[in-house]
Simulated scan of single mutants.
Amino acid sequence: MKIPYLRHLNRRVWEALIDDIQHEIEHKKRLMRASLSALNSDLFFLMAKHNDNVGGTISYGPCGEDIRKCTNDEFGHVGTLESLYVLPGYQGQGVGSSLIQALMTRLKEMEVTHFCLDSGFKIAQTKWLRKFGAPYTIAKDYWGKDGDHMVWLCKVQDLL
């Protein structure tokens, strides 16, 4: 009797996850297009390439809406590490760390001293906790029950 319920519950969870992923993909596409405009010089992407293949990307831009909400707009003036994605075939090879290092070098050149980072995905949160330590704030149940949203405030110098 419990098995059909669990299958039904899992299907709903998977459908919600797929919707979240699709929303995230569309958001990143909009960011990428916006970064190509001369009007958005405060938004940019860096890519890690191996031969002619892109292995990963990282972006930086203005403070996002979720960070503003979670911090009562304390960080409205601070830029955000928007996204870090490494293709599965390149994971575990230091590509993500190299992208972060390249971004920190670029931010230092721009005389940026701090940046924000936020995450609502549990898998990403685990990685960010290891990399950046305790978050500045945790918005409990932001995405629903047990769907916490974490926000970090980081110093560029600490990562160089």
Rank of each mutant, 00 (worst) to 15 (best):
A16K: 12
G64D: 08
E111K: 14
A102P: 08
K155H: 13
P88T: 01
K2R: 14
G144P: 02
H114R: 14
E15W: 10
W143P: 01
P4F: 01
L117V: 14
Y90V: 03
I58Y: 04
S97Y: 05
I18V: 13
D66Q: 05
C116L: 00
I67F: 00
Q125A: 12
H50T: 11
W14C: 13
Q101V: 04
K2L: 13
L103A: 08
Q91R: 14
W128C: 07
L99H: 03
K155W: 04
V13R: 14
G147T: 06
G94K: 06
V54K: 03
E111S: 13
K127T: 11
L31D: 02
L159V: 08
D73Q: 09
G147H: 06
A38I: 01
N53F: 09
G76C: 09
D66Y: 03
Y90R: 03
A124D: 08
M32D: 01
E65F: 02
Q91C: 06
H77K: 07
L159Q: 11
S37L: 12
L17A: 11
I21Q: 10
G94T: 06
S98R: 11
E74N: 07
T126D: 12
E74A: 11
G64T: 06
H149V: 07
F44E: 07
L46K: 05
A38N: 09
K140C: 04
G89T: 10
V86R: 02
I100P: 00
H27F: 09
V112E: 07
V151C: 04
A38F: 05
D146R: 10
W128F: 15
R33H: 09
M47I: 15
L6H: 11
R7T: 12
S41Q: 12
N51M: 11
L87G: 03
D118W: 00
Y90K: 06
